[in-house]
Amino acid sequence: MPKQFIPFPEAKHRPAIIVDSLYPKGLVLAHWRGAINPNGTADDTSAGIVLNALKQNIQGLDVPYVTANHFDVDGFVGVWSILNPAEALQNEAVLRQMALIGDFRELDLTHPAVDQALKLVCWLNKVEKDKFYPPFGADEWEENEVEASVPKFEYFLAAFKEVLTHPENYKQDWKAEYEQVLADYQILHSLATQVSIFPEIGLVQLQTPRPVHYYALFSRTIGYDMVLAQYTENRYELEYKYTTWVDICSRPTLPRIPLKPLAHILQKRETSGRQWTAENVTDTGPILRLEGKQLHKKERYANPTERPIYSSSIPPAIVTEQVVAYFREKYTGVMPKQRWTWPEIKAFNN
């Protein structure tokens, strides 16, 4: 019997597989903190967990429904794979790369499946914005995304198989972003970009001429969890990657440290008249940056090329020095591990 996608609230009344979300009943296949996935299915992405479950044909996959509480690339790929298991396993490598690009923005152009995966992710991004709304673009997102995401799922679940099979027929949708990513990737992998790694604090510093697409920027950060981007004219952003909001299984991580105290440290040196700000550690991707105005969540989630990044009065070397010193002090004596819980992270920071 074919499975069916249902809106998340209906999981109260119907037996459903829960993808990329938490729920107290049903088979949960998610990389969210606190999710208890079946033995042997661990993966960095929720879609990877789903694909592992399908390959092993684990118990619980025979229920008639599947759901998720939000729409993003990783969650969509997971839901689609549950509904189309044979096709999913035939295209496993592409789907895994889609989830990595979509969730962690980690693009590895040396992977044989990544070119098609990038085209498909760019297609999803373009059509999602054109037909619906961009990520975190629903009004009062946390309250409305559960409902607002349903039409997205219905549309993309119906359309995706054809695009997966014949991506070149949809070039008009993915071409512009795809070409931007490739051009920016070349900048990040050229002598124009200087990379400094601080493994003891999980930080990569990228000194590059201008803001670039996230998929290019984070292509130099695979295996690390914080990114300090330094652009010309003293423009800076420090960001925690999504790899520390979820549970990844491929490597241990350090717990998140609040960025607001670091903002206060930098503010004491700032003479531009602008304010250093940062989100809480529980945000999906908190950014330390110099503000002109407070950015909406959808603007922070969008690519650095899509938001203003202001010049600071602080020289790059001083910013690096302050950032590295702050995290080295906070992480003194702390060992990376897997499966940090939010209570552990909050207790550590208290």
Rank of each mutant, 00 (worst) to 15 (best):
L109T: 11
L107Y: 14
L118S: 06
E106V: 13
V79F: 05
G78W: 11
V79A: 13
L109F: 09
S81I: 10
F104A: 09
K126D: 08
R105L: 14
S81Q: 07
V121M: 01
P112K: 02
A99W: 13
A113T: 10
V121H: 01
V94D: 00
R105P: 00
L124N: 01
L107A: 07
I82C: 05
V114K: 03
R96N: 08
A86M: 09
P85Y: 14
Q97H: 05
G102L: 05
Q90I: 11
V79S: 02
N84W: 01
K126Q: 14
N84E: 06
Q116S: 13
V77M: 15
H111G: 00
N125V: 12
V114T: 14
N84V: 06
Q116D: 14
A93N: 11
E106R: 13
S81A: 12
L124E: 02
A117M: 03
D108Y: 00
L107M: 06
L120A: 10
L89C: 03
A88P: 04
H111S: 11
A99P: 07
G102I: 09
A117Q: 09
W123E: 01
L95V: 14
G102P: 12
V79N: 03
N84D: 06
F76Y: 08
K126W: 03
N91Q: 14
D115A: 14
A93M: 07
L83W: 07
G78Q: 04
A113Y: 05
D108W: 11
N125H: 11
T110L: 11
A117V: 09
L95C: 06
F76C: 09
G102N: 07
E87R: 08
L95F: 10
F76T: 07
R96Q: 10
N84T: 08
V114F: 05
R105Y: 12
Q116P: 01
N91H: 15
A86Q: 11
L83N: 04
L124A: 01
R105F: 15
L95E: 00
L124K: 03
P112Q: 12
A88L: 03
E87D: 10
E87K: 09
N125Q: 13
L124H: 00
E106S: 13
L124M: 15
P85K: 10
M98V: 12
L89K: 07
L120R: 02
R105V: 07
L124G: 02
G102T: 06
N91I: 08
D108K: 10
L109Y: 02
K126S: 12
Q90F: 02
A93W: 01
K126A: 08
L118I: 07
W123V: 11
F76S: 11
Q97D: 15
Q97W: 05
F76K: 13
V77T: 14
K119Q: 15
G78V: 00
A86S: 10
L109W: 02
